[in-house]
Amino acid sequence: MERRAFLRTAVVGAGSVALGFTMTRESLAYPAQTGPSPYGNLLPADANGIMLPQGFTSRVIARSSQTVSGTSYTWHGAPDGGACYANGTGWIYVSNAELGSGAGGVSAVRLDSNANITGAYSILSGTNRNCAGGTTPWNTWLSCEEVDRGYVYETDPFGVNPAVRRDAMGRFKHEAAAADPDRQVIYLTEDESDGGFYRFVPTTWSNLSAGTLQVLKESGGVLSWANVPDPDGSPTRTRKQVSGMKVFNGGEGAYYRNGTCFFTTKGDNRVWAYNAVNNTIAIAYDDNLTSNPPLTGVDNITGATVGDLYVAEDGGNMEICIITPDDIVAPFLRITGQSSSEIAGPAFNPAGNRLYFSSQRGTSGSSSGGITYEVTGPFRTAL
């Protein structure tokens, strides 16, 4: 049997298998293998130090500690998780600040239909190490604190309503959130080497003030969801409360699409695919299951409507890699000259033709040197 075929059928853990078939265009074949990008090879770095495929261009939209162009607002340090929201005349990009000692929070930059910056402002402040997060179907941004017994904050990207701390979503080292409108739950990742994969079941969908926190467990290869007895996590941390909890090594980004929640774990460089319809889980990517793996240091994740996933690296080659529905993983872009940084916050504008992301520490290697970018080009709309 060829190595590729063997790897695609190998059991990689109880209840977690590498599936050996191509799925629908809305999902991925597992595990993804190194191959050519649908956009071709990367060209030499542009004036912003970014290597891109033919036809794509980049620009800087904000720099930490500097005023956002055309506004009086100073962009935050250590930009991390982000997302875009349509606002009728254009869109808004929100970005977390992964700063401690109460210096964390979330900033927003507003752009018109031609991508001109028309405003920038804060939508959350006074928090700690806001790492990743997630969007909701009712157009709020969930900002997650990556600290022991951290909180989730629900914020308003439009800057109208004050942010609200959502205690019912549990206190642990939060990383990312992904809303599943079909089952009316929100999946949550935990950045611990022995972390869990959670879901929050609101008492009323669209109201996150009350509900039940559950964690994924496994027994005899069968997955189930168990209530976390004490979501407050004190004195016993949430990941220590449920016997048989399925352990994940350093949960990072999360992205939901068409019945599947994709999430990453940095400790083993994996992208997971939790199939909520069938209640199964599989490894969509593992750098040990392909030759010459282009994707290492997996971190934030997002997707395009065509079915492609985009995974940012924390370290590695400072790349955002694409994982296509036809089982290929390849670099989409690379940031040069910033080896002491990480890429964070990848998100598409509503039209899907502009990709936003940040280099958290930029060329300086300091949280005050973060750079937020926009990439424009012929993103594919059909396979």
Results as ranks from 00 to 15, higher is better:
E218T: 02
S125V: 05
H174D: 02
I343L: 15
G49V: 10
A10E: 11
Y274N: 09
S364E: 02
L99N: 08
E342R: 15
A351E: 11
I61W: 13
V277S: 14
G303T: 00
G170M: 10
E26N: 09
E252V: 15
T127G: 01
G369D: 03
D156A: 12
V106L: 09
Y30E: 09
A83K: 09
P36A: 07
L52A: 13
T135V: 14
S16L: 15
S341T: 14
A282N: 09
T290H: 02
V106T: 14
N317M: 00
V60H: 01
S65D: 13
D80H: 10
E145S: 04
E154R: 15
G253Q: 12
S339P: 12
D180M: 11
V329D: 12
R8K: 02
T204D: 08
N292R: 02
V147G: 05
D180S: 05
G307M: 10
T189D: 12
A10G: 10
M23E: 12
Q184W: 06
G100V: 01
G251N: 06
G211I: 11
C84D: 09
S209V: 05
A18Q: 06
V298G: 00
A254V: 01
E98Y: 09
A14H: 14
G195L: 06
V60R: 13
S95N: 10
G77W: 06
A276S: 09
R183K: 13
G81A: 00
Y373W: 05
V247E: 15
A32D: 10
V94P: 03
G316S: 04
F6R: 01
R110N: 09
E218K: 08
V109L: 04
L7S: 12
F262C: 11
P294K: 00
L213G: 01
P137Y: 10
M245N: 14
A304M: 01
G244Q: 11
S206K: 03
A210H: 07
G244K: 08
L19H: 11
T336M: 05
P378Y: 01
D286M: 06
V12I: 13
V11P: 15
L42I: 00
P38S: 02
Y153G: 01
P38Y: 03
L42R: 00
G195T: 03
G40W: 00
E145F: 08
Q33F: 10
T363N: 11
A351S: 14
T290A: 04
T204P: 02
A163W: 07
S69T: 14
G55E: 03
N161T: 07
L28W: 06
S101Q: 12
T71N: 10
D194R: 13
A14Y: 03
N288W: 02
I323K: 07
G221C: 04
F348T: 09
N278R: 13
D230L: 11
Q338G: 08
D287H: 02
S364V: 06
Q214L: 04
L52W: 05
V106S: 05
A14E: 13
G315P: 03
I92Q: 02
N258V: 15
T67W: 02
G370D: 05
T57K: 02
N116K: 05
A177R: 07
S341Y: 03
S113W: 01
P181C: 06
A10T: 12
K266W: 03
T381Q: 09
A62Q: 13
S125H: 04
T336H: 06
R171L: 04
